[in-house]
């Protein structure tokens, strides 16, 4: 069990300023950062965002390799994006067109990876139940409209907790079917999709069974939804959380102003 490769977005229990930040602050700031990264499509902006990412990863004491590893499934998508952008941009033109296309493709991939890495930092540095608490707190204003905030947050956290388990099961089923001669890597798209049924069906059976067992186990431990539930460590908003939030928001504003005035030459 200790040998299993890290699954995507699996929590890494460490002690760091990023880990200790209130999950509400982290959720809020993540959304703000994603809004800042999304429109960036030039070298200086993306370079700044990348620097900020490195800074945050360093602050979170995460080994860089672990971050990359936990995003491995996305790396293929990134490669695909790169090749696609390169070919589409180049269009068989001359050397300068190729150079230009190379630049565009690089920026596109850089932005995609930045979005993914930033997003994955959240589950990597926040325990699922804590994340659920944060989400529940942020969603609770919508409760008055009948939105099941607690249930949604609990579902999220249970799903996160099951990711490593299902990764392991999926890996074993793939190996088992390959051992029975299943060819998962040949033929056209339709053939491949059909070839995947022997993996998908058992996986769904497992998920349903697990869900049923877990529901029973939760009931056995007295879970009756969010009503009347207390917390072992209720979320406490600290001064440092206010400080960190203000700091990051100011940085994002500065970044936006920098983009608006320096890069795009807007005059006040």
């Amino acid at each position: 069990m200790a040998f299993t490769p890290i699954a995507m977005g699996q929590y890494v229990p460490l002690k760091s300023p990023v880990h200790q930040l209130d999950p509400r602050a982290k959720l809020f700031l993540l959304v703000a950062v994603l809004f800042a990264v999304f429109p960036s499509n030039d070298f200086p902006s993306l370079a700044l965002c990348t620097l900020a990412l490195f800074g945050t990863v360093k602050l979170a004491r995460l080994p860089g390799g672990m971050l990359v590893r936990s995003c491995r499934p996305v790396l293929f998508l990134a490669l695909f994006t790169f090749v696609f952008n390169l070919l589409a941009g180049w269009g068989g033109g001359g050397f300068s067109a190729l150079l230009h296309a190379l630049g565009t493709a690089f920026l596109a991939v850089n932005r995609l990876l930045l979005l993914v890495f930033w997003a994955v930092l959240l589950p990597l540095t926040t325990a699922p139940l804590e994340l659920a608490d944060g989400m529940e707190a942020l969603l609770s204003p919508f409760r008055r409209f009948g939105f099941p905030a607690h249930e949604c947050a609990m579902m999220m956290s249970v799903a996160l907790r099951f990711i490593p388990l299902l990764t392991e099961e999926a890996d074993r089923i793939v190996k088992a079917q390959v051992s029975r001669g299943a060819r998962l890597d040949q033929g056209n798209l339709v053939q491949r999709a059909i070839a995947f049924f022997p993996v998908l069906i058992p996986l769904f059976v497992i998920i349903f069974r697990r869900a049923e067992e877990l529901a029973l186990a939760m009931e056995a431990r007295g879970y009756r939804g969010g009503v009347g539930r207390t917390r072992r460590s209720p979320l406490v908003w600290k001064k440092s959380d206010t400080g960190a939030t203000i700091f990051v928001m100011l940085a994002i504003c500065a970044f936006a102003l920098f983009r608006m005035f320096v890069l795009h030459g807007a005059t006040p």
């Binding site: 929590y11 325990a127 186990a217």
Partner: peptide, 8 residues
């Protein structure tokens, strides 16, 4: 496997 709710 299927009676643990918390990741920690």
């Amino acid at each position: 496997e299927s009676q643990i709710v918390g990741a920690v």
